[in-house]
Amino acid sequence: MAVIRFDHVTKTYGDTVVLENINLTIDDNEFLAVVGPSGAGKTTFLRMLLSQEAPTSGQILIDDVPIADEPMPDRGIVFQRYSVFPHRTVLRNVMMGPEWLAAPVTGRLFGAKRTELRDRAQAMLDRVGLGGHAQLYPAQLSGGQQQRLAIAQALMTHPKVLLLDEPFGALDPGTRKEMHKLVLELWSEHQMTIVMVTHDLSEAFHLGTRVIAVDKHRHDPHAPHRYGSVITSDFEAKPRLARALQRAERAAG
């Protein structure tokens, strides 16, 4: 279960209002796509949900509990770049989360526990299509493979919410299509809530069960910083229907 609620969230930097009084409830197992023009506050929205930045006022709750004020394993993240560790092999990258959670001092597991974790990591790599690349370093992978790795790494700690910050923005169209398929599959397998920020409208409607647009609702030409962005549009997208149908079929059959 992961219901996310934005409760009167406002974010300002000095005089500049970025986001203004956001009220939003994101249902469990929703795939929320956030779109909007550059500079509208999409990334600020995501960073607050990640606790990389704190709201100026208001609060964000997951399952009615306010989120911690620093990034935590309940919310996984995949950035557009730099979200894997260049000094560890692909396999070790995927093992890092569980190792950190299990070994506070050394950050390493040994013996049977390590073998068990390695098998789990290898299975995860096989699932995202990197099974044969376990011993390579991330810099030896292509852009799409690096993002597969970043997703696999995030899923190893079973986050309630997966955050995607323009994860496919730097990929070529063919690779992007494959990544869309993978993300949709993983989303239904892991039953988690996903929040994705993108500037690509067709991507948003292809993946999201719900699409929101953030943009400035008022513009004062003499003081452009005085009004922040709000949610200007809110759509239920086709994949939600598809998901509902699937669930109905499963319940019936």
Binding site: L50, Q52, P73, F85, P104
Partner: peptide, 27 residues
């Protein structure tokens, strides 16, 4: 070291000490 890596490490549960040992030192 890119901020993204440090944030990612935290979402994977790393403490300050674990990040020093596992992310900062090797790089």
């Amino acid at each position: 070291i890119p901020r993204e890596q440090i944030v990612k490490a935290q979402t994977l549960g790393a403490s300050t000490w674990q990040m020093i040992l596992g992310v900062v030192l090797p790089q």
